[in-house]
Write a protein that binds this DNA or RNA. Structure first.
Lengths: 203, 203
DNA sequence: ATTATATCGATAAAAAAGTATCGATAGGAG
DNA sequence: CTCCTATCGATACTTTTTTATCGATATAAT
C-alpha cells in the first residue's frame, strides 16, 4: 500500500469529492477553475490550489483543465479505483437507507448488513449479528458503518475493531473511542443540524 | 431576532454540540477542560478557548467549570431553546430514518414529511407533496431537510425557497444552489465516505 | 498582426485556527 | 500552615488555510 504521507489538508480532502462530482457531470472536455468554483461557491484560486496538490496536469490559460485527467487524478488520489467492501451494522431505517443510497462512488460496495432482529435478515445482504465475526473475517472487510442504537454503539465498535476493522463511520449519537491506529468518523447529525439552525439565526 | 455577528469560527461551532453532549451526559456538577478534551480527543487549551467564546462563566483552578452553566450558555448560543419545527421532503428510507432519529436535541421537532408516493402518506406525519405549500405556509416552517432523489432535488429546493424556507439540509448527492440569503448544508455522504477511505489508506 | 480577455501558476500577504507559555489560584496532602 | 498539583485565563507564538497580486499565455476579436 503506497503511503501517501503528503500534507494534504483535511479541508482540501473534503472538497475533492465535490470536484469529482462536478467533473463527472459536465459534458465538456475542459473546465476552468472559475467554473468549478462557481458551482461550489468557492474561490477559483482555492480550486486551482487544491487541484495542484493532487494532480500534475496543468491547465491552459483561457481554457482550463482536461476533465478526464482531473477525474483520474482525483480518483487515484482518493483510492477510488480498487473496489471497497463495506459492511453496515444495524439494519434499521438509517442502515437500510445507506445500503440503498445511490450517491456513493461506483466502486464503493456495501456488501453486508447486520442486525439483531432475525426478521430483517434476508440472508442475501442482511444477516444476523451472530454471523458478523465469520463474515467480516472470511471476506476480509476493513470498513464498517455503525447505525446501531447509541447504547450499543461502543460495544459494537470494540467488537469491530477486534475483528480487524480499520475504519469506522459512526452514525450513533455518541463519540466512539478507538485505538489510535483506527480511523473513525463520528457523523453527528445532531451537530450538523445545530450548526444549520445557528446559521439561520445569525442571518 | 438578536443578530449574533460575533466571529465564532465554523470549527468551534461544530464542536459546540459535541461539548453539549458530554456536558449532558456527565453526572458531576463540575467538569474540567482536560476532561472534555480527553473525551473528544482535543486539546484542553482548545476546549477552554471555545468555551470562552460562548460562555462568560469562569472555571475555577483545580475544579473546572459548572456543568449547568456551560449547558445553558451553549444552548443559548446555539439557539436551542426555542423549539424548531422542521419538515422532511422525501419520505424514503433516509427521510424516515431522520424522522425517527433519536440523537437530535429535544427541541428539534420534525413536524411533517412529504412524499410523492401516496401509499406512504399516513396523514399524521407523512403527507403528499400536493400539500407541501399549504402546510409549510400555514405552520410557518423555515427549515427543511431534502432527501428526494438527486434529479428532483434542485427543483424541490427552488420550490422550498419560494415557500419561505430559510435553511435547507440537503442529503441528495448534488450541490444545490440557493440565493445568498438562504442557508444550505449539502451533506454529501459520498464525500464523507471517500475521506474516510482515504484516511484508511494513508495509515 | 495587434489587442483584449480569460485563465493559468507562482509567490506573497492576510486571516484563521491551533498550540505553547506563564503567572495565578483553589483545594488537598503533609 | 506550607507546599504541591491541577487547572484556569491571558498573551504570545506557530502553523495552517485562504486570499490577493502579478507576470505569462492561449484563444478570439478587430
Amino acid at each position: 500500500m503506497e503511503n501517501k504521507l503528503n500534507s494534504i489538508s483535511l479541508a482540501t480532502l473534503h472538497r475533492l469529492p465535490k470536484y469529482l462530482r462536478i467533473l463527472k457531470s459536465t459534458t465538456d472536455d475542459t473546465i476552468s477553475s472559475t467554473k468549478i468554483a462557481e458551482e461550489l461557491n468557492l474561490s477559483a484560486i482555492q480550486v486551482r490550489k487544491d487541484l495542484a496538490t493532487v494532480s500534475k496536469s496543468e491547465g491552459k490559460p483561457k481554457i482550463g483543465f482536461e476533465v478526464k485527467d482531473l477525474i483520474s487524478d482525483i480518483e487515484e488520489y482518493l483510492n477510488l479505483n480498487k473496489s471497497k467492501d463495506i459492511i453496515v451494522v444495524g439494519a434499521g431505517r438509517l442502515g437500510q437507507a445507506l445500503m440503498n443510497y445511490t450517491g456513493f462512488e461506483n466502486d464503493v460496495n456495501i456488501k453486508f448488513a447486520f442486525d439483531v432482529d432475525r426478521k430483517k435478515c434476508d440472508n442475501k445482504k442482511i444477516f444476523h449479528n451472530d454471523r458478523l465475526d465469520e463474515l467480516v473475517m472470511k471476506n476480509n472487510i476493513h470498513v464498517a458503518i455503525i447505525t446501531v442504537p447509541k447504547d450499543e454503539a461502543q460495544n459494537m465498535c470494540d467488537r469491530l475493531v477486534s475483528l480487524g476493522i480499520k475504519a469506522i463511520w459512526n452514525f450513533a449519537p455518541v463519540n466512539l473511542k478507538v485505538p489510535s491506529d483506527i480511523t473513525i468518523r463520528n457523523e453527528d447529525l445532531s451537530a450538523s443540524l445545530a450548526v444549520l439552525l445557528n446559521r439561520l439565526n445569525i442571518k
